[in-house]
Amino acid sequence: MDSWQLRIAVLVSIGRNPVSGAARPNRNDLLALELARKAGGEVTILHAGDPNEPALADYLAYSAAPLETIPLPGGQDIVPALAARLQGFHLILTGSRTEGGEASGMLPYALAKRLGLPIVAQALDLAVAEGQAEITQFLPKGQRRRVTVGLPAIIAVHPMAPLAPRYSHLRRVSGQSVALPAPALTESASTAWRTEPARKPVVLKAGEKKSGHARMAAAITSESKGGTLVTDGTPAEKAQAILAYLRSHRLIEF
């Protein structure tokens, strides 16, 4: 069991400063990198894109792991190339979403399909034991869910993971970066998209032919439904009225 070494691949992308537009490491991917470091094991950072991108070196500064780049020009499907390199890893970690590119959050799912691996998204924390990964998942309303999944698996890290990646200039200058041989190109399927300058999106509304009277009525009557009013009774009865309301809507369990 001692010879067994956990191998983790962290997929990183090039982020984009929202104000200046300058290239930078993607914060979501930095969290994935930090989570991989915390989980222990042998980490490899993997990027598909331009190997000469200066922002890539910043990933070295956040981790002692080597960086491998699959040279791919823009507009190519990165899934086949990544899937070919990702054979043999026990864990594949990614951020939840890129900052440039399509930013659809589909990459981990597409990889999971291609490699036939399970995927758990929204991970906040990770522990590996006995061929299983135990993941704490983010749920809204302050809830957290614990899930285990058999290895190998793909895990997408939630942006709110309580991790603090640390920058080290020494690691940046001494880290090793390797460009892998260029793979066969596959044209990306997502050619259906056309881009235009951003503007405020138009909210989809149901078309409605309304008379002037109806518009006036809608404008002067408030939308509020005006709930139940309880005025009579002792404080105990009123407290019971509140509890009954909460129970009837299944908001409390007693």
Binding site: W193, E196, R199, P201
Partner: peptide, 15 residues
């Protein structure tokens, strides 16, 4: 349908 790209500076549209 349309969704944002490049940190909200572009709007991408498709059928």
């Amino acid at each position: 349908v349309a969704c944002y790209r490049q940190g909200g500076t572009l709007l991408a549209r498709r059928g």
